[in-house]
Amino acid sequence: MEAKYGFFLGCVAPLRYPGIEKATRTVFKELGVELVDLEGAACCPAPGVVRSFDEATWLALGARNLAIAEKQGVQIMTICNGCYGSLFDVAHMLHEHPEKLKAVNEILKEVGLHYSGNTQVRHFAEVLYNEIGIEKIKSKVKNPLPAMNVAAHYGCHFLRPSKLKHLDDPERPHILDELIEWTGAKSLNYKDKQMCCGSGGGVRSRNSALASEFTAEKLKNMKAAGAQYIIDVCPFCHLQFDRTQHDTVKGYDIPVIHLAQLYGLAFGMPKNELGLEAHAVKVNL
């Protein structure tokens, strides 16, 4: 087991839901995995916006983050599907296109960095599932959660495109459901479970009404299945479900919890360290 990762924070977790950052630090420490900070890392950069605007900028900013990890000699671990998607795709594109890697390094030279193409990009949920595993995780559950019926939201860029990621079946996945059930909670099946939350691709900012329609459909399907909580693995999906229920799609009030926070709760973290006051939909645990 790789016992050390570069912890890539991204934007939304540290600046909107710091409980996700705090819970991740605590949970991985408890599991005996060292997380080191990637000093001076920036936005991944956001795949739906920056990549939509200008691929060369997206590649250069992504490569800067990959180069920082390479310099520190660590793999990158993200807690966000967007960061995972972006950094994974940048690393893949630079690997497949040596001319793009060369162009990016010409730019990175200006800031004293170089990327050789060696940084692996991992998603924390996949690290939990593939590297740490059921036995270790179950041994750390001090506070089992059998009373929780939850709707798992995989989001898009965790598993897709599956041709590159090879983590799970993109239409009928099980990883997140299993990770949830290792805490004792029950992960429900619901209609269109794999559907997007609506926030990606720059849609939340450019066309928030459309994003809200996606979210409303997901909420309806989650509620019909009896979901008491939504469990996500992406702070941006998290923000979309949390803020949209508060601002536009009212009447559901299904609390939104990131998987790291769920693990924090199950591992016995004090509730006041989960950052729940930052949530727009009140979380009663």
Binding site: L9, P14, G40, C43
Partner: peptide, 28 residues
């Protein structure tokens, strides 16, 4: 919550932010 007020990213790290802006100027 016991976290540093600024995360260890470009936020609150002027040198890192200057580097980032340099890259964005270079790409236009």
């Amino acid at each position: 919550m016991g976290l540093p007020a600024n995360p260890p990213t470009t936020v609150g790290n002027q040198k890192a932010q200057d580097d980032l802006v340099k890259i964005m100027k270079k790409t236009g």
